[in-house]
């Protein structure tokens, strides 16, 4: 891919979403550097491109890159580290991370942040104390976004690693929910379908249960609806049954079924059956029992299973 095209793409999307250069590159590189990248006068490494595009809600896998040897090696290592973490293979993950640390360029915040995030995840999954994990995550986010929690009039953009750090930090520390939700608002508006699923859905999944615990049912239903919309667009079913169930429970708390019309009761019963069979597809016996319990308690109905 021509150098010019990468910068061109960055400029196009930045202009389309009416973002300043500072908004895009704040904490990652200087405005002068971004300017040269956009003009095609400067090459950057793959992770920097990835972070910039990710802040715009885009995925660079849709582009064709020709990487130099060192950059390619780092790219491969990132892939291996992510794969190991997904598979729970923490031993190999640690080895790859150590190799990454030795190979990564000096003083490049995006690389440091990547390493710190995965070091924190390794600590978390090896049951180190929560304070240690939090401290490392906080250090990681401060590399690029030292003021992320402070109220701001200007829209702040977050790349994929930054969002994952905040997702992990969210339930350790109390953050202003409005500030955090604005974090995802940009992704919902402009993110690619897959980017929304990878970056937003897991966070929304935690939120719907947190809102239920806090008895904030309006927000619970709102988040569930937004999640369902994202999943529908991207043809993913990640936590789909949960979001439908949480939405239904929330709506029932806001508008109780007692004394409601027969039409509504029938609709809710139909929904219960959909969700029940979705959980059956997942093999989630516990959730199947929960929805049956909901039907018996709230609708005074019982789902008849004819399957073995």
């Amino acid at each position: 891919m021509k150098l010019y095209d990468v910068g061109n793409a960055l400029f196009y999307y930045r202009a389309l979403y009416k973002l300043s250069q500072n908004q895009l590159c704040d904490g990652i590189c200087s405005v002068a550097t971004l300017c040269r990248i956009e003009a095609g006068e400067r090459e950057a490494d793959c992770l920097l491109y990835e972070t910039l595009f990710s802040r715009l809600g885009k995925n660079i896998q849709q582009f064709e890159f020709v990487l130099n040897e060192a950059d390619y090696r780092l790219c491969e290592l990132r892939f291996q580290i992510e794969k190991c973490m997904e598979e729970g293979n923490f031993t190999d993950g640690k080895i790859y991370l150590s190799q990454y640390l030795n190979l990564m360029p000096d003083h490049q915040v995006v690389h440091c942040q990547f390493v710190m995030f995965y070091q924190a995840m390794l600590l978390k999954f090896s049951d180190h104390c929560a304070e240690e994990v939090q401290a490392l995550l906080r250090q990681a986010i401060h590399l690029t976004r030292p003021d992320f929690a402070a109220p701001s009039t200007q829209l702040q953009l977050f790349g994929s690693i930054e969002r994952r750090i905040l997702y992990e930090l969210f339930f350790y520390e109390k953050y202003d929910l409005n500030a955090l939700q604005s974090l995802f608002h940009f992704m919902e508006l402009h993110g690619g379908r897959e980017e929304k699923v990878w970056n937003v859905i897991s966070f929304f999944h935690r939120l719907v249960f947190w809102f239920e615990k806090e008895q904030r049912f309006l927000e619970m239903v709102e988040i569930a609806k937004r999640a369902i919309e994202i999943l529908f667009e991207s043809k993913s079913c990640l936590y789909l049954a949960d979001f439908y169930f949480q939405k239904m429970k929330g709506e029932e708390r806001i508008y109780p079924l007692d004394g409601c019309s027969q039409v509504r009761r029938k609709q809710v019963m139909e929904q219960c059956c959909h969700i029940f069979y979705l959980y059956m597809m997942e093999g989630n016996q516990r959730k199947m029992e929960q929805i049956e319990h909901f039907c018996r308690e709230r609708l005074k109905c019982q789902i008849i299973k004819q399957e073995k």
């Binding site: 043809k235 139909e270 069979y277 979705l278 004819q306 399957e307």
Partner: peptide
Amino acid sequence: LSLCKKYLRQGYASAAISK
């Protein structure tokens, strides 16, 4: 046949959910 019914219900539920 009961397995067929189960699969059809699961198909029906997933078709409904994915509109």
